[in-house]
Design a protein around this nucleic acid. Structure first.
Lengths: 333, 333
DNA sequence: TTGCGAAATGACAACGTTGTCATTTCGTTA
DNA sequence: TAACGAAATGACAACGTTGTCATTTCGCAA
């Protein structure tokens, strides 16, 4: 009664054929006569045979799995994982996942070493904060490695939202609508997204010879945006505010309203991520939206491409989109 | 120059010891003399040896991986995955993940078959909508299976938030504060969470002999909550609204405000998920919060436990918490 | 030095597949 | 019917580990 796992050999015996024929039924069905194939199939059915992953990969020298290392699990990460998983599914790969534990410190090298003991043909690192060995890290030569991060890496391929470009886009949108300068409310200091968005904001202004105003420090949540909004409401020169995410943008707007100012008539606001409409009815907030899903898809495709034809380092930027609503006033009229 | 992968045999030769000794250095270091161990370690270092997962698992008959099938990837899923991943990490397991593609229809049986060809010792299904073969599905006997779902399953262990209990809790909270009846705004029809929350709401009322009022249909987003709020604002008997999530609750509150009604003075509101504070400054919304992370942890632990000591079916409910703010008025005064 | 038990090491098979190459069977034509 | 080439099948080794059991080496006491 205590059956061990059913092997191809068991199936072969039951079907009255050789081991190799069973193997063929699985891998190259056309090369075996239909009658034989049927016998084998029934035997497999009857015994409940399922191919052994370990033996198969050992022989083939590959796993059909892509490793994913999550250094950080944030909101946008869901969509990214979704993209990775869908793209993997489509190309016949499964995902092998490990995650940095909260509090624990994990370097790229550690992650790579851990991964290389697992069933993976290539790997993706999701890295949204700086890590100690970023610049010195070298990926194992036999494991195509792609890093999802806004930073450029000396040897590995990277994929990223074009956060900087998105911020620039939003900023130029303000300027093109006649605003003379733009205030910026940042996210958490250690977040690379926040840093990049700030960089893009600054770059867009400087490109037009405008001296950027002192940025306000936020922490992604609405309350910090509200605090910033209270400060901004008192600045007579404040006509445009770029907040590093929609929650803070909403905080800013609420503060302005509470101070008797109207958006967009008195002050214009743009946020990031375009998610306010989920929470606020009839949301008017114009927002820069990134295609996180696409990000995941690109990362996975890059890994798989590197598997088939060992490729050199590449850098992929996925552009953002400005979702226009009515929170920006045109001052040129 | 074209080195193949380094095997334990290569290391053995380089270190001048036997294959088995290298194996021992890895698996039972104490059983080998220190001097030998050092030789082997240097050889491993020099050659860049990394143990072959396939061969190892083939021999051991286990993988050290838990499969995760994502049928649906929603907001709360991030935290749940986070919990699963952390718990896995802690117990020395990695995760193998596959995902139902959008549009594709996947049954439990298909998912199980797919998983059983992958490197997994057990598996977790994340199932938040009904699936065709739910009741008839039987898990492979050699693969401990846990389903994360509010439904009870005839043969598999399940883990779930106590959504029904959470809704009951919120409802009773209203009643205990002197409200005579409670309106309900539901989420998407096909969502099991929404169904369970509605069930709990109804149960709590009926338990007190109160005839539940006709529920309002929403779709999780704020706009649908707003629409519901407009309707509710016209009902003179409406003193308490339970919305199936915070976004809709916010929509309801905004509609009430736009109709000149005050929360909580005129109408009290409770939501679910406790996430409004991220988006709304100084949020006053009382909300039922579920511990999604804990959910993941429990699911993983259940699987691992079933690995070590094949256990029978179990049902785990993770209770919710009512996060009290000021959106509920006490009518008893 | 010799002998002894314990500790350390090694030789070899086995895990369940797939690749290589040899063998058998089939369908066709002479 | 015989002969032939193509199609179908089979025998066996190999992938890189770990378990079993035999062998060698070591430390210590006689």
């Amino acid at each position: 009664m205590d059956k061990k796992n059913v092997s191809m050999n068991d199936v072969a015996v039951a079907a009255g054929v050789s081991l190799k024929t069973v193997s063929r039924v699985i891998n190259e069905p056309d090369s075996v006569r239909e009658s034989t194939r049927d016998k084998v199939h029934s035997a497999m059915e009857a015994l409940g045979f399922r191919a052994n992953f370990a033996a198969r990969s050992l022989k083939l020298g590959r796993y059909g799995c892509i490793g994913v290392v999550l250094f950080h699990l944030s909101g946008g990460a869901v969509d990214m994982i979704d993209g990775i998983a869908d793209a993997a599914e489509e190309r016949g790969f499964a995902l092998t996942m490990i995650k940095k534990r909260a509090g624990e410190k994990m370097t790229l090298a550690e992650a790579a070493r851990r991964m290389s003991q697992l069933p993976v043909d290539g790997m993706i690192f999701n890295l949204r904060q700086m890590v100690d060995d970023f610049d010195t890290f070298e990926a194992p030569k036999d494991l195509k490695t792609v890093i999802i991060t806004p930073m450029e890496h000396p040897t590995c391929s990277t994929v990223s939202d074009d956060q900087e470009g998105g911020a620039r886009m939003a900023c130029e949108y303000f300027l093109n609508h006649g605003h003379k300068n733009v205030y910026f409310v940042s996210g958490k200091k250690e977040s690379l997204s926040s840093q990049c968005r700030m960089k893009g904001w600054r770059a867009a202004l400087e490109a037009r010879g405008i001296e950027p105003l002192e940025p306000l420090q936020g922490d992604w949540n609405a309350d910090s945006g509200y605090a910033a909004g209270l400060v901004l409401a008192d600045k007579p020169d404040c006509t445009a505010v770029l907040a590093a995410n929609d929650c803070m943008a909403n905080g800013v707007m609420m503060a302005l309203r509470d101070k008797g100012l109207n958006v967009p008539d008195d002050v214009s606001v743009i946020g990031f991520d375009d998610e306010l409409y989920k929470t606020i009815p009839n949301s008017i907030l114009t927002s820069v939206k990134f295609r996180h899903r696409e990000l995941g898809v690109r990362a996975l495709n890059e890994v798989v491409a590197g598997l088939e034809a060992p490729s050199s380092r590449s850098r992929t930027l996925v552009s953002g989109v400005l979702v226009e609503r009515s929170s920006v006033k045109d001052l040129r009229a």
